[in-house]
Structures are given as C-alpha cells and as structure tokens.
Design a binder for these strands. Structure first.
Lengths: 172, 172
DNA sequence: GTCAATATTTGGAATTGTTCTAAATGTCTA
DNA sequence: TAGACATTTAGAACAATTCCAAATATTGAC
C-alpha cells in the first residue's frame, strides 16, 4: 500500500500543485494544508480554522474556506460529507471508503482492500459495523446518452433537474 | 423482490404507523406521504412542498418539514443526503444503494442484489458508473467498548467529539 | 530594489436549507 | 361540548457556507 503524503514532502507537493495551476504559495495555504496533514481526523472547516489559528492568530475563517477550496481543486485534499453535517476535509487522496461512528460522530478511513475487480473489505479491529450503503456516481442513462452525442453538457448543475424529473424512478 | 408500498396500501400503512407511535392522522401528513409515493424521484423538502401545494394550496413549508420528520421517525420514509445538497426524501424503505448522476443531479435507487453474505450488484441498463464509495455506519472501537460496558451512551451527539479527537486516525 | 499587475486575504453581508417559537387551529376523549 | 393535547402555521433564528469589495501580499519586469 502506498504511503500518504508525509509532512516532509508536503511543502514541495503543495508548491508544485499550486504552481501547476497558476496559483501562489502563501503562508495561509501552507498552514491550512499542514493542519490537515498533521492530524488526519477529518476536521471540519471550523476545526481547521481553530487549529490554524493557534499557529497563525490572524488567519480568518474566510481564508480557511478559500484555502480549503484551493487545496481541493488542486487535488491535495478532498471533501467528505456525511448526513448534512459540516463538510470535513481529508488529506488522504488514495481511494478509500469511510466509517462513521454513531457514538462519537467520528469519521475513519477504510482501506479499499484487494485491487482488481474483486472487492474484499476488512474492517480494522474493534470496529462494529451496523450497516453500510454504497454510493455510486456517474451518468444516468439519459445523461450518458447526451454525452455520447457530443452535446455540450454542464456538469453537476443542481438547478438542472429535468433529467431527474421526467424519468421513471428505478424502483419496481 | 418485494414490492414497495402501493398507493392503495399507503393510507392504511400511514394511519397504522402513526397510531402505533401515538400520532394523529392529518390531511397534511397524508398529502406529504402521497407526494412521496406518487413520484419516487427523491424530491427535496422544497420540491415536496411545491407538489403538495398544488393539491393543498394552504400547506406551509414548516408543515412539510414537520410531516417529513414525522414520516421519517415513523419509519415510512427515509432521508437521503448527497454532498451538502438539500436532503431528499425516499419512500423506498427496502435496503438499497444510491446512484447519483453527475449530469442532472438525479438520485436513483440501486437494488442490493443477491441476499446473504455475498454482494453482487448490477447496475440497471444504461447507467455509467464512474466511481463508488462505501459508507459504513456503526461504532468505532472506543464507542463499541463503552457500550459493551453498559455505560449510558447518547447516540449521535455531534458535539461529543472526544472519541474522534484522541484516536489515532486509521490511515497508515 | 521598486513598480505595476495580479492574486490573495479579510471582515462583514448575504444566502441556503433547516429548526425553533409561540400563537392559532384542529382532533380526540370524556 | 369542553378540556386536553397534538398539529399547523408564519416568521424569527440558526449554522454552514458563499459572496463582496477593500486592503494587503506576491510576482515578474525593469
């Protein structure tokens, strides 16, 4: 299994990715990224703000949001959403699943296990799974067809709900 | 495969479940439940409101939220969340997974396929999966241990984050 | 190093989806 | 039909997030 980004590589990785997308390396971006690498417990923007603030007292919440967004679009960090709670941020960019604790609300990474077509997941010791749910992303038949025809398509525009509304729902 | 609740059974089912939990059957609750049974495309509260309003012009948004919550706690309807978008409501109470279309934003139910331990999912024709993610729910080692000891535990209190914060994250 | 051009940060206002509140209305039981 | 209690309602409050426009920082050219 590949190693995640170490704090040592982080600076290089960060400036590299920022440069690649024509962005500047700032102290705030470095700080926010560091927070995410230092303790990989999926903090919310609020939590990132508080941790960053302790090392950089003048950083603002708006900046934390900006930096997080930048890191996400640079592919250095990903967002993790669960129920409608605040978005959390994760510096583990390898493909993985998540375990959400009903007790403490914690989020834990679950390794996707054996590669290839076969999926063989193993929970780390001590975890008690009550249920699971698979979340697929892709294109529904209508949108897949539209894209094949080469029509210009806007991805993920929430206001564009035509497809959803006139299709027969897939439960029988 | 079992059939979902038909509109005909719905009234009975609704009053039955409401009575079981000491609640009253009201026109608004019936209306909201009907909206959800009539078109199973995972509408948001806003969409439910608009559809309900066309048959019952005086219904209010607050009532729609109240009714939806009641239906959820009665086990007649479930909430479906995706990214941080508005919660959607689903009257398919059988265990199933979800497919989210990146094109139109639609949500579709995916049958969990073969019963038993083995999981063999099949996408309905035309769907193009780009990626998937598994979401586990349960208890993390610390919370599982606490519960075994019979300590009184509050389930899912978001403010209680101790467990999350002092545990080493599970990525290596 | 200095300057201009441009990107970023910042505080506060605005927005969105949702919950709360308290008064009005409805339903049920006696 | 009254009294007890549940439900509905409009609007205020709320939390997480985004937007805005001014202040500040960074970069590249000289």
């Amino acid at each position: 299994m590949k190693k995640p980004v170490s704090i040592d590589d982080a600076g290089e990785r960060l400036s590299e990715q920022l440069a690649r997308t024509g962005r500047r390396l700032t102290a705030q971006r470095r700080q926010v990224y560091n927070v995410l690498l230092l303790k990989r417990d999926h903090p919310s923007a609020e939590e990132v703000f508080m941790r960053a603030k302790s090392a950089m007292p003048d950083i603002s919440m708006a900046t934390v949001y900006n930096c997080l967004e930048t890191l996400v679009t640079c592919g250095l960090v990903r967002q993790v959403n669960h129920d409608r709670k605040a978005t959390r941020y994760c510096s583990n960019m390898q493909h993985h699943h998540h375990f959400y604790c009903d007790g403490c609300g914690g989020a834990f990474d679950i390794d996707p296990g054996g590669a290839g077509g076969q999926l063989r997941l193993e929970m780390p010791p001590g975890f008690r799974v009550r249920n699971f749910e698979i979340l697929f992303r892709g294109y529904c038949p209508e949108c897949a067809a539209k894209r094949k025809q080469g029509a210009p398509v806007t991805i993920h525009d929430a206001s564009q709900t035509s497809c959803r509304s006139h299709r027969r729902p897939l439960i029988s």
